[in-house]
């Protein structure tokens, strides 16, 4: 194993808003311990949080795999949910398919994917309707 990288794995439980975001807050804590610049920590934790919440809201959970190297942080959020039929549409600010219940909780404002894009240096979305989605977020360090 490459000693110059850290790999982390988290299960993202579905439909539980009370523990949603736990993985991203753990990652945030670790990035602070690594002494990574505050603005990079912020970008990473917001982008990851949004992707994590998306997996909770739309896909009944999934998993998060994170790799940290001296150069970049790569976050892969994978779910086996319904997939995104039109990624371009989903990327538009304010577009949301979240239920009223989810909106009442303050989520589902259609800012999830746009925010991920805003806070990441590279974003890749692989999705297949009926099968699931893999969101890969890269944030460069320095």
């Amino acid at each position: 194993m490459d000693i110059n990288s850290i790999r982390l794995h988290y299960e993202i439980p579905g439909d539980d808003f009370t523990i949603a975001g736990e993985a991203s807050s753990n990652v945030k804590k670790m990035l602070n311990q690594l002494g990574i610049a505050p603005d990079i920590v912020k970008k990473t934790s917001i982008a990851m949080y949004e992707a994590e919440i998306n997996a909770v809201i739309h896909a009944g959970g999934g998993e998060a795999n994170i790799e940290i190297t001296g150069e970049k942080i790569t976050i892969v959020i994978k779910d086996n949910g319904p997939g995104i039929p039109d990624v371009e549409l989903a990327m538009q600010e304010g577009y949301s398919t979240a239920s009223d219940y989810v909106r009442e909780l303050g989520f589902g404002a259609g800012m999830g994917l746009p925010n991920i894009k805003r806070y990441s240096d590279k974003l890749d979305i692989q999705t297949e309707v009926g099968k699931g989605t893999v969101v890969t977020i890269v944030v460069n360090i320095n």
Partner: peptide, 17 residues
């Protein structure tokens, strides 16, 4: 940054691991 494990990021990564 009182939580930082090491000044050197590579060393900090090893410590974190």
């Amino acid at each position: 940054p009182v939580m930082k494990l090491d000044e050197d990021i590579i060393k900090a990564m090893k410590k974190l691991e």
